[in-house]
Design a binder for these strands. Structure first.
Length: 935
RNA sequence: GCCCGGGUGGUGAAAUUGGUAGACACGCAGGACUUAAAAUCCUGUAACCCUAAAAGGUUGUGCGGGUUCAAGUCCCGCCCCGGGUACCA
């Protein structure tokens, strides 16, 4: 007697989880003739809160795919690891004095315990932890490869610095200009040097020049400085001018920081999107982030009050509007500002610069529409008609984009138009009636007027005409610009990878391979110095470990360890190379990568960058890491609120809260039934509430509700352990899949979980008689049962290939319902079905498989191939529609000719009733689909 | 503002190429079993009209229009929700 009861489920799941672990059934070999398939989850950051039901959603999906592909005969790599460096562990250390290594290890253990209960098929022997020195040795090593590389724009690939030195000695840098247009030869204002000059430079100058080319480089950059966190943040860690974590203010600060020259790869990162299978929105997010725009650089002459001339280079996407330029605007930080400001305007400009300086990022963002600026007193000369226009400065022009200067065309650009109106500047109309005098019109379709040699041309055609003319005159050229900036790679933190470099004479030099890893030293004071140095500065002996030698006090961002972990899984224990070339070639690209869309820009771009660089340097034979990316939707929590009357300990029910001045407080969802607060439990929940008073509605306290991100601090977290305790892991797995399409975000509720549980029990009962004893028949299955089986197999295979797991669960339910009503317990039907179910519900499947008399694990079976033979139908019940409305059904053989169907349909009683004897205009017969009679 | 994605019963959702809208499940209602409850099983369940019932009819996939024999699906305009991004020249 064995019911699919709570106790029995626990026994079964424990039994198989133990056996799988004991037998090592998930261990994957690199050495096989089988075709590979690589299924990857975005590895989690092991937070102290443990797993909630949102985490496993993607893991369950990837587990189903892995198990399915294994049954289909592939050698499947499905590993798991931990993104274990990061700020929260360090913050925890500062608050509680517990070393990040200790708390991280504990959290990882909690995660693994929770994961193991869900029955995932991870090969834990391949686990990686980014904070493990054996792992970050290779993170540091790859960093040094990037440090030792430059981007050859001619060949569009990374090459070694040694090759660059060779080139410089031979021909200088004329063919390979500085990647950053602002770079100059140190101590001069030259952008170009000859081979001879290179050889005459001293060692430090040579190093400084090379630094301008390195793909990992150290430079003074404007960084996002967060005083409250005491650290620099990456652009993607700053949201709306405040820090992503904590929401603290962020200001700009010049600091000497490591950066990755990702801008050199902008075009390849863009092009690579065409060959990968990511969702449209994901590609769009990355495209927007890269932000390519095509236009021209144009050099204007600027005259100051003493008629001195300066070159002013602007970037514009609309060179066609050059005759509509009414003024120029420089970023306040533009280096020309000091030079060209007239004496009369100096006070005003300085006042304006002080104002800009005083503005924080949030101020700027909050007041984007505010129009400010100042006139320099200088004039720019239009290179085509010699017209002189005033040069202004304004914060709406950003120093970091393009050249930090624009030509302003008020009739065509909204911002320029507002600026002109605000300061009373004249507006030239070059687009005739397309400009209404009220607001700018950014069209490209207008026919140009007042535009000299462009008159009569449509704007989008004029663009090329102007650029050609600019190039002829040598005052401009075609130019592509990208919004993306180089990636800041230094963090003022302890809990990250130290930079494997040694400074001599203030220049960084790579450590030798055999010196790696540069391990994190022991530390007790994790607080950063607050001067912009990381906590490692608290260890002067470690930093200044030898005469004239110094280490970097910063560490790398968490993105570093995550940028290549998928490569390490292929050969995780190698201590000679980051991964054996044979293993890398065998496993290659990740076939399916599943994770949240919040990593769209940072993690995915950095991974793609590192893979491209490693590819260019000859370590990989592919240059996109992820063939297909699936973003699972978030599972949101259903939060509950109580409303406290301000300054009291009295709580008012939701319906009455508008009568009082109240503050909403999150309340633990576990002490609220629906919307009714359990007042007893609430008083016990927190000491503060022990004496709480309540203003009720009727007899009840009704809570407020909101759908929010699932978070411990919102008390709306549902722990998967609870579900497993009550229903088992198989039910949890199938229920999470049944909730809806994987990529949709959806609120967690347990309304439907009973339905899934009942399905599993009914499925179990197919194998058991009324007394609960195992009983299957070896008799010949009926054609009906075979049809049900093969229909199911076909659908399941289709659905898994299309990541449509909610519909596969439905299909299993339909199948089980149908077999149930047929009272079918034939082995020939049930055996294949168990295999098909095993990716979804592995525990029950293994148990039934064993009961069916098999001694080997079900994992080594083959997914049963459906056979169209059994699905073939002879006839079809046609819906008969009249003028598009279905009025009847009629059964015809599928091979019946259209004309015969038409005749029979028209002769039928129901059609005669509707046609009233009149001849129809038209009859459409779609074989196997529908008949439509048009009157 | 701009760019993506989405809007279908009381609820989660399904509809693979334009071809029977609402599969599957929850919930609800009724019934069987039970002293009773739980569990389980059976039946019904888009809305409206008509009917004693059956049968039948009308409307219906955010709104308005269009293409088509046929539209949740394609086209045009609009509204709302979610995400990304934001003086990017």
């Amino acid at each position: 007697m064995a019911d699919y009861s709570k106790e029995e489920i626990k026994n079964i799941e424990k039994k198989w989880q133990d056996k799988w672990a004991r037998d090592g059934v998930y261990k994957v070999s690199n050495d096989t003739a089988k075709e590979k398939y690589y299924v990857l989850d975005m590895f989690p950051y092991p937070s102290g809160a443990g797993l909630h039901v949102g985490h496993p959603l993607g893991y369950i999906a990837s587990d189903i795919v892995s198990r399915f592909k294994r049954l289909k005969g592939y050698n499947v790599l499905h590993p798991m690891g931990f993104d274990a460096f990061g700020l929260p562990a360090e913050q925890y250390a500062i608050d509680h004095g517990i070393h990040p290594a200790t708390s991280t290890a504990q959290n990882i253990q909690t995660f693994k315990d929770q994961l193991s209960k869900i029955g995932f098929c991870y090969d834990w022997s391949r686990e990686v932890q980014t904070c493990d020195p054996k792992y970050y040795k290779w993170t540091q090593w790859i960093f040094l490869q990037i440090f030792d590389s430059w981007y050859n724009q001619k060949k569009e690939k990374a090459e070694r610095i040694a090759d660059l030195i060779h080139l410089f000695a031979k021909e200088g840098n004329a063919n390979h200009p500085f990647p950053n247009a602002k770079s100059l030869v140190p101590g001069s204002n030259k952008e170009v040097f000859t081979g001879g000059e290179w050889q005459s430079f001293d060692a430090k100058t040579q190093q400084e020049i090379l630094m301008q080319y390195r793909l990992a480089y150290l430079a003074y950059t404007d960084v996002n400085w967060c005083e409250a966190l005491g650290t620099v943040l990456a652009n993607d860690e700053v949201i709306n001018g405040v820090s992503y974590r904590g929401g603290f203010p962020v200001t700009k600060k010049q600091m000497r920081q490591w950066s990755l020259r990702i801008t050199e790869y902008a075009e390849r990162l863009l092009k690579g999107l065409e060959e990968v299978d990511f969702s449209d929105s994901m590609k769009e997010i990355q495209r927007n982030w890269i932000g390519k725009s095509v236009g021209a650089r144009i050099t204007f002459q600027v005259k100051d009050e003493k008629e001195r001339l300066y070159n002013l280079v602007v970037f514009t996407t609309r060179p066609d509007t050059i005759f509509g330029v009414d003024f120029m605007v420089l970023a306040p930080e533009h280096e020309l500002v000091k030079e060209i400001t007239s004496i009369a305007q100096r006070a005003e400009i300085e006042k304006y610069l002080a104002y800009v300086e005083s503005r924080s990022e949030i101020d700027r963002m909050a007041e984007v529409k505010k129009i400010t600026g100042a006139f320099t007193g200088a004039f720019a000369v239009n290179p085509f008609n010699g017209r002189e226009v005033p040069v202004w400065i304004s914060e709406y022009v950003l120093v970091g984009y393009g050249t930090g200067a624009i030509m302003a065309v008020p009739c065509g650009d909204e911002r320029d138009h507002k600026f002109a109106n605000h300061f009373g500047l004249p507006i030239t109309n070059i687009i005739g009636e397309y400009y209404n005098g009220q607001e700018a019109n950014p069209t490209k379709e207008a026919i140009l007027e007042n535009s000299d040699f462009l008159d009569g041309l449509v704007m989008h055609q004029a663009i090329d005409v102007v650029i050609d003319r600019l190039e002829e005159k040598g005052i401009g050229k075609r130019q592509v610009n990208y919004k993306m900036r180089d990636a800041g790679w230094s963090r003022q933190r302890y809990w990250g990878e130290p930079f494997p470099v040694v400074f001599t004479d203030d220049m960084p030099f790579a450590m030798e391979d055999h010196e790696l890893p540069l391990e994190l030293p022991e530390l007790t004071n994790f607080k950063s110095s607050g001067t912009g140095e990381g906590p490692l500065a608290n260890l002067p002996d470690w930093v200044h470990f030898a005469n004239n030698k110094r280490r970097d006090t910063n560490t790398m961002p968490t993105h570093a360890g995550a940028a290549w972990y998928f490569l390490r899984y292929t050969d995780p224990h190698n201590d000679q190379v980051f991964a054996d070339r044979k293993a890398l070639d065998y496993w290659g690209q990740v076939d399916v990568y599943i994770g949240g869309s919040e990593h769209a820009v940072a993690h995915l771009l950095y991974s793609r960058l590192w893979v491209k660089i490693l590819h260019d340097l000859g370590y990989l034979n592919f240059d996109e890491p992820f063939k297909k990316l699936i973003n699972q939707g978030k599972i949101t929590g259903d939060s509950r609120f109580v409303y406290r009357i301000r300054g009291t300990n009295t709580f008012v029910s939701a319906g009455l809260k508008d009568n009082y001045d109240t503050d909403p407080l999150h309340v633990d969802v576990s002490i609220v039934a629906g919307l009714d607060l359990n007042i007893q439990a609430f008083r016990k929940w927190k000491p503060d509430f022990a004496n709480a008073e309540f203003i009720l509605e009727g007899e009840k306290y009704i809570c407020g509700a909101a759908i929010e991100k699932m978070s411990k601090s919102y008390f709306n977290v549902v722990n998967p352990d609870e579900i497993i305790e009550n229903y088992g892991a198989d039910t949890l797995r199938m229920y999470e899949m049944f909730l809806g399409p994987l990529e949709l975000s959806k609120p967690w509720n347990t309304h439907g979980i009973d339905g899934v549980f009942k399905f599993l029990r009914r499925f179990w009962n197919l194998f058991h008689n009324a007394q609960g004893n195992f009983e299957v028949s070896d008799g010949k299955p009926t054609p009906e049962a075979l049809k049900v089986l093969h229909k199911t197999l076909k659908k399941i295979e289709y659905d898994i290939d299309h990541f449509s797991f909610n519909t596969s669960v439905s299909e299993f339910m339909i199948c089980s319902n149908e077999l149930n009503s047929m009272k079918c317990n034939k082995r020939a039907i049930l055996e294949p079905l168990v295999i098909a179910l095993s990716p979804f519900a592995p525990h029950i499947a293994e148990e039934l498989w064993e009961k069916l008399g098999h001694s080997d694990t079900i994992l080594n079976e083959a997914f049963p191939q459906y056979n169209e033979e059994y699905l073939r139908e002879d006839s079809f019940e046609y819906p008969i529609s009249i003028n598009g409305k279905v009025r009847a059904k009629m059964n015809f053989a599928l091979d019946m000719p259209k004309e015969d169907i038409e005749k029979l349909v028209l002769a039928s009683e129901i059609v005669i009733k509707w046609t009233e004897g009149k001849a129809p205009k038209k009859v459409i017969v779609v074989p196997g689909r529908i008949v439509n009679v048009v009157m």
